[in-house]
Simulated assay, not measured.
Amino acid sequence: MRLITHYIKTTIALLLLMATFLACNKEDLTGQKAMQVVVNGYNGGTDELEIVIDTTRYDKTVSNGKFVLKPALTFDFNVVYTYPAAKKPGTLSIKNPESGKILFSKPLPESGTKAVFNFIYIDGKEIDVNTPAADASTNKLVFYLYYTENNDPVDIFLYRKDESSGQEYREYLAKNVLPRTWIYFDYLSTTNFDDKNELGKSDICFTKAGTTDQWAFQDDEKQSKTSVFGMGFPIAGEKGLVQAYFVTPGVSGLDRLRLFFHPDRVQ
């Protein structure tokens, strides 16, 4: 009797184990994975562009067209993409829906939960973003100034006016920068721009080289100055960061975009 009871218990245990195994395999076959997909960049063409991930097309029919890449504007595409766990995540493409031409195509990473891409499209071609290596002793900042009206050199500086004393503070980031080229420089925060509160009240200014009040873009202050808030500038004690920015005159003011995605650096 004990042998029969032991047999029954063993059989039940094996059946439960098999059921668990089958359930796990079923989950592997039918489960979904999720990946955050971020594309930052600029559409310098005259046509709208669309992003396609595998077979998912983010065209005008999706969310009232908010994911369509409008001409002559920066963009920050950010979606959560789901796909079958048993399959590879697929490929991200950027295409011109009018011509059908694919302008950019990269596979999504097979591991991890985040995919980040940059796409700057100017004069009918992609502009490469050459990322400098991180340096533990400093921070690496990168700027691309897209301006086509002239090729005059530009100075870039941080500016803040003390609300109480009225004292003005300036910190030069780079001088004699030429438009339509990448500029790389090392940066460590200085006393007057070393915390989030100070940076939140500061502007970044672009002036004609050697001046502080002759605006570089369209001779217009609004098109040549913008708040530092949201740019993720390094603060006191921070080193080893790498951050790139794309800057161009926009529809209603200076348009600037952080090319690298750092969700933990909102300021």
Rank of each mutant, 00 (worst) to 15 (best):
Y147Q: 05
A13K: 14
L145H: 03
N64M: 09
I127P: 01
F246D: 00
K88D: 10
L199Q: 04
L16M: 13
L178A: 14
T11W: 08
D203Q: 15
D264R: 11
N25H: 15
D28E: 11
P109G: 02
L29K: 08
R2A: 15
F206A: 00
S99A: 08
F157V: 02
K140V: 05
S252W: 11
N25I: 14
L29Y: 10
N64S: 12
I12L: 14
Q243C: 05
K26E: 04
E149A: 14
L3F: 10
Q218D: 14
P97D: 04
V52L: 15
V228K: 01
S165D: 03
T207K: 08
E171T: 10
T10K: 15
K161I: 12
A13E: 11
I120T: 00
E238F: 10
L49Q: 01
R258S: 03
N176M: 10
P109M: 08
L158S: 00
K95W: 01
A244S: 13
E110R: 13
R265F: 00
E126Q: 14
P89C: 05
T131D: 12
K87E: 10
D155N: 15
K201S: 07
D203C: 13
G237L: 04
Q214N: 11
F229I: 04
K95S: 08
G230Q: 02
V228F: 03
R57W: 04
G100Q: 12
F193E: 01
L173M: 07
I94R: 01
D255E: 11
Q36I: 04
D28K: 13
S202G: 13
D162M: 03
N118Y: 03
Y169M: 08
N43A: 03
M1E: 07
T138A: 06
T11Y: 12
P71L: 04
T91A: 14
N118H: 07
L103Y: 07
G65E: 06
V37M: 05
R170F: 06
L16R: 13
D135E: 10
L254F: 09
K95T: 05
G65T: 12
K88V: 08
T61G: 02
P84V: 06
T148K: 09
E171D: 15
T207I: 11
L178R: 14
F75R: 02
A85V: 12
F157A: 05
A86C: 06
Y184W: 06
L14Y: 13
L17S: 15
A23W: 12
G44Q: 14
G41A: 03
P234I: 02
R256I: 07
T20N: 09
A236P: 01
